[in-house]
Design a binder for these strands. Structure first.
Lengths: 208, 208
DNA sequence: CTTTTGCCATGACATTTGTCACTTTTTTGT
DNA sequence: ACAAAAAAGTGACAAATGTCATGGCAAAAG
């Protein structure tokens, strides 16, 4: 398996090369220390896996990865990082990286590379711990606990969809005043002030 | 590395055992075909990794995994499945599984096992494709594209937080009428009707 | 049978909101 | 320094919104 290592700390890059080439089955085709290197070397060598630091001077690993994937959508990029930063994790996932592992887990990097080469995606232990938080478990909101009736729930959803009282009334075959009353009741029960706060509440607390 | 294989299709389990034991470094300590087997065998052998089918007769792999993790929080469970089902993926992540790969990718199972043994988490290619959807892509909204200025953006955020015009004016040291004008401009640019739709837009399009 | 309760409606009212035309102030380019 | 452009403000107005007190009505409860 051929890989390319990109890290702006040349010592780290060299250490990785030494470790990985001695674990068998891995050949380091080239090494670089910047995002530009990454793009250039990938196009040149087409390695099985690209092992890249996510945080570098100048062009970040993410931008470089995005560019590489634009040119070669099947490229396999494995990011290396020193800490599990939520922002980076999400962005890495979004651009289509094949993994995100911590430099601390250096014993596992070889195994991760093999798995990535086989088409799997790999995440370091501590990185994984962050994922469930980012991926909302979608804990269903309990309307009953707040004393919200079925009809009130319906109205709340329409308000949260951006409809006016008149539109809601038309949709539910109710009087416009009735809708106003329902909204008043909702505002009271949820301790809010106006329909906009109702919508905000819906998106932050209910649909979270 | 010692593992346990759990699959209610004995033929599949046997095939896996044969394949894995011939790839080197992997020993199958035991095999089972139910959730109960999984719990019992895990407690008995304490394997490095538990390779388990997620879909089984009776107790599902998920329930068994939950129970195992309750008794041994550090247990490493790698789920095997035939298809990438969103529901299962989320639940598997939530209970703390170390991976979720497809049986079709059998060439990569050994590599995945090694990575998991080293503490990483592994996801099959097709499984990974589903993750960004489940995890809001949070693709940074481009305010400039809609001709929205910095101040307008600020106001939009305050509206989306549920503040009234008076409150926004106070917070930004602006006149109340000015705030209204800004909101009018925003509504015009985004082709919306009122502040509530503005909040809805914020949560659905921007903060996705 | 009445009483209560929940759901729907109405009308009056104060407030907030959105629009518009226009002025003042500040920034900026040259 | 001066004119153009952008940002901030004003006031008037119509429409939408939220509150409240009140009443009809049907089903459930007593």
């Amino acid at each position: 398996m051929q890989i390319i290592i990109i890290d702006d700390d040349r010592l780290v890059a060299l250490s990785l090369k030494t470790i990985l080439e001695n674990t068998g089955g891995i050949t380091v085709a080239a090494m670089g220390c910047s995002g530009d290197d990454a793009i250039r070397l990938y196009a040149l060598y087409r390695p099985d896996v690209m092992l890249m630091d996510i945080r570098m001077e100048g062009m970040s690993g993410l931008e470089a990865g995005e560019e590489i994937l634009k040119q070669a959508p099947l490229a396999k990029i494995l990011y290396l990082t020193t800490f599990a930063d939520d922002e980076y994790i999400i962005k890495a996932l979004h651009i289509g990286a094949k993994g995100y592992i911590l430099k601390q887990d250096f014993e596992g990097i070889a195994a991760a590379l093999h798995a990535v080469a086989e088409g799997q995606s790999v995440f370091g232990g501590r990185v994984m711990d962050r994922l469930p938080d980012l991926m909302k478990p979608r804990e269903s909101f309990n309307y009953a606990e707040h004393g919200i009736s079925e009809k009130e729930k319906e109205i709340l959803e329409l308000v949260a969809a951006g409809f006016s009282n008149r539109e809601i009334a038309g949709r539910l075959f109710l009087g416009e005043g009735t809708v106003r009353n329902y909204i008043s009741a909702l505002l009271d029960k949820l301790a809010l002030r106006d329909r906009t706060q109702l919508a905000v509440y819906y998106y932050t607390e209910i649909r979270s």
